[in-house]
Design a binder for these strands. Structure first.
Lengths: 144, 144
DNA sequence: CAATACTTGATTAAATCACTCAACAATTAG
DNA sequence: CTAATTGTTGAGTGATTTAATCAAGTATTG
C-alpha cells in the first residue's frame, strides 16, 4: 500500500509546473533543486509525463517543461497511474488494468472475499485521487 | 498501492481458521492445499500471526493452528499491518508508524500538499480495513 | 559554432518479494 | 522408548522492482 518515490517526485514536480502554469517554462534543474529531486531520475519521470501527454518540453537554451493541460483537468489519480500503475491494491479489482488472479481458489468473481473488500478499498482510493486535481493539490500547499 | 502476496495469503489462511473457529485446529498443509499457498511460505506467515497474538499452535501429530481471538475482534487492518506494515501510502501520514520524510522541502506539516491528500487516502483505507472483521470477511465469502 | 537543455537507452546498486531448505524441538501413537 | 508427525527457526536464493546514474546523443539559442 505504498506510493513510490517516483510518483511522489512526479507530483512534486507537477506542483512546480502548476505554480508557474501560464507564466513560464521551467527547467528540470530548477525543479530538481526546489523539490530536492535527483536530476537524472527526474528526467525519466518528466519523460513519462510527456509521453502521457501531460507536459511538453522544448530544447535549447530557453528550453524547459510546461503543463499542456490546465491544472484543473489533471487529477492525481491520472498521474499516479502513469508513474506507478493501477491504484487497485490487487489486480483482480482494478478497473483500468484488470488482471485475473491465478492462484485464488475462488474462480467465481462474486465468491472471493478478498475481491469484495479490496474492491471497496480501490473505490475509496480512486474516489479521492480521481477527484483531486493539480489545482486542489497546489491549494493544499498554500493553505494546508 | 499494492497488497503483497504475503498479506493476501495471510488473509486467506485466516479465512480457513475463521471457518473452523471453535471447531477444530487446522494444519498448515490443509490450509495450503485449500487456499493454494506454498506450505513453506505459509509457515512464516502463520508464525508472524502467532507472534502478533492472533493464532495459537500446537505441535505433534494432532497439532495445528487455531484462532486465539474471536473473528469479530480481528480486523483486516490489523492483519495487513502485521504482514505488510503500515496502511499509509507514505510514512509521514502513518498513524501507527509515523516517519518524517527527509527530502520533502515542506518541513512544516501543514504546508505539504502530499501529506494533505495522502492523509485523506490513508484515512479512507483505514476506515474500511479497521472496521472490517474476519467475520465480515467470511460473510463476504459465503454471500458475495 | 559554442553553450545550454532536453532525449534516449543502457546500466547498476540496493532493497524487497516470494519462496525454499535444512536442522531442530515437541507431541503423540504404538 | 521410539518412530512418525507437526510446528519452529534461521538462513539462503533467484527474480523483480526501485531509485537512481551515465553516457552519447539531438535540438535550440546566442
Amino acid at each position: 500500500m505504498k506510493l513510490s518515490k517516483k510518483s511522489e517526485y512526479g507530483l512534486r514536480a507537477l506542483l512546480e509546473l502548476t505554480l508557474s502554469y501560464g507564466k513560464a517554462t521551467i527547467q528540470r534543474r530548477q525543479i530538481a533543486e526546489r523539490q530536492h529531486i535527483p536530476v537524472e531520475f527526474l528526467e525519466q519521470i518528466l519523460l513519462a509525463l510527456k509521453r502521457a501527454g501531460l507536459v511538453a518540453s522544448s530544447r535549447g537554451m530557453k528550453g524547459g517543461y510546461t503543463l499542456i493541460k490546465s491544472p484543473d483537468e489533471i487529477t492525481l489519480g491520472q498521474v499516479i497511474r502513469i508513474l506507478d500503475g493501477p491504484l487497485a491494491p490487487i489486480g483482480c479489482v482494478s478497473k483500468t488494468a484488470y488482471q485475473k488472479c491465478g492462484d485464488c481458489p475462488y474462480a467465481d468473481h462474486a465468491q472471493c472475499p478478498v475481491q469484495h473488500v479490496m474492491g471497496s478499498v480501490r473505490d475509496a482510493i480512486a474516489d479521492i485521487l480521481d477527484h483531486y486535481s493539480l489545482d486542489d493539490f497546489a491549494a493544499g500547499h498554500r493553505k494546508g
